[in-house]
């Protein structure tokens, strides 16, 4: 009984992590950078829904689309302004710039909307489905279903379309792809746009699951999803999905059966153990050093 509930919570949390981790892993694979500001796009997505619904009385279903558009604009804009000039610099410079962007978004949100947590609107008012003695909350079910649809869409997009082919080519060898006529800049922008759109959806479901959003709400799920992406093998799209779900399940199980205070420590400890056994993550490719 408790196990089933923990399972459902874990899959719910895991789908949020998987959506965020997809953004991390795609940007890492294609632009070769750790986008530390990705977590704050989640916050931007969730906060924009709150503002739209509470202050402009937009219908929640419509607000999610506006928030996705807003986050895509935000993601592409930061890529164009902050990351593009650094395309050929050391990864450390790009990392620090991403951290700067992250601080910028957090502080902008704080100045515009205050530092206190805002309550997320109750979006799903439908009754729960009861099967036997297990209660399936509607918001959980919708989160999981939507996540699965989006994940299949991303997999289809990356592995079955021409743009996806170009993305994979850029990820494999940027210069060779450029020589074959792949428009690198546009492909990287599209990658950021997809990542930001997924983050906006994840932010929405995060708000639904936790009920509160503030300017710093994005950093912890961001760090955890980053962990999930590494867990599954960073750069690998199926890996990010697997890593997200495993991390969500592990966190939920540890919270239910071992200790809720120590859950972070145990989950991160698990990550270290996995990386020690399989240094490139679960589905990561081993890269041989070339001289």
């Amino acid at each position: 009984m408790a196990f089933v509930i923990a399972m459902i919570n874990g899959i719910n949390l895991g789908s949020i992590y998987a959506l965020i981790a997809l953004g991390y892993t795609m940007v890492y694979g294609i632009a070769k950078m750790l986008n530390f500001a990705h977590g704050d796009v989640i916050m931007a997505g969730a906060l924009s829904v709150v503002v739209l619904v509470q202050q402009f009385h937009v219908h929640p279903a419509l607000s999610i689309f506006i928030s996705v558009i807003f986050c895509v604009a935000l993601g592409v804009l930061t890529e164009k302004i902050a990351y593009k000039p650094l395309r050929n610099s050391s990864s450390l410079s790009v990392l620090i710039t991403a951290i700067g962007v992250s601080y910028l978004m957090q502080n902008l949100a704080q100045i515009l909307f205050g530092s206190s947590l805002r309550s997320f609107p109750k979006v799903f008012r439908w009754p729960s489905v009861i099967l036997g003695s297990v209660e399936f909350k509607m918001d959980r079910v919708i989160t999981i279903v939507v996540t699965f649809i989006l994940m299949f869409f991303v997999l289809w997009f990356v592995y079955r379309t021409k743009i996806g082919l170009a993305m994979r080519a850029v990820a494999q060898d940027r210069e060779a792809a450029m020589l074959m006529g792949v428009p690198i800049d546009r492909i990287i922008s599209i990658t950021f746009a997809i990542g930001a759109a997924l983050a906006a959806v994840a932010g929405f479901f995060y708000g639904v699951a936790y009920g509160f959003v503030g300017p710093y709400s994005g950093s912890m799920p961001g760090i955890k999803a980053f962990t999930a992406a590494v867990f599954g093998g960073i750069g690998s799209i199926p890996g990010a999905i697997l890593g997200g779900f495993l991390l969500g399940l592990a966190e939920s199980m540890v919270k239910t059966f071992i200790s809720s205070e120590l859950s972070d420590a145990i989950v991160f400890g698990l990550l270290i153990v996995v990386l020690l056994i399989k240094p490139t993550g679960l589905l990561g490719k081993e890269i041989r050093d070339k001289v």
């Binding site: 890492y28 750790l34 760090i223 980053f226 962990t227 590494v230 960073i234 205070e261 120590l262 972070d264 420590a265 991160f268 400890g269 990550l271 270290i272 990386l275 240094p279 490139t280």
Partner: peptide, 17 residues
């Protein structure tokens, strides 16, 4: 980057413990 993530995890473990 894997070293970075392990040190990140280590820092979080210390804080949580």
């Amino acid at each position: 980057d894997y070293l970075a993530i392990v040190t990140l995890a280590f820092g979080e473990i210390v804080r949580s413990l």
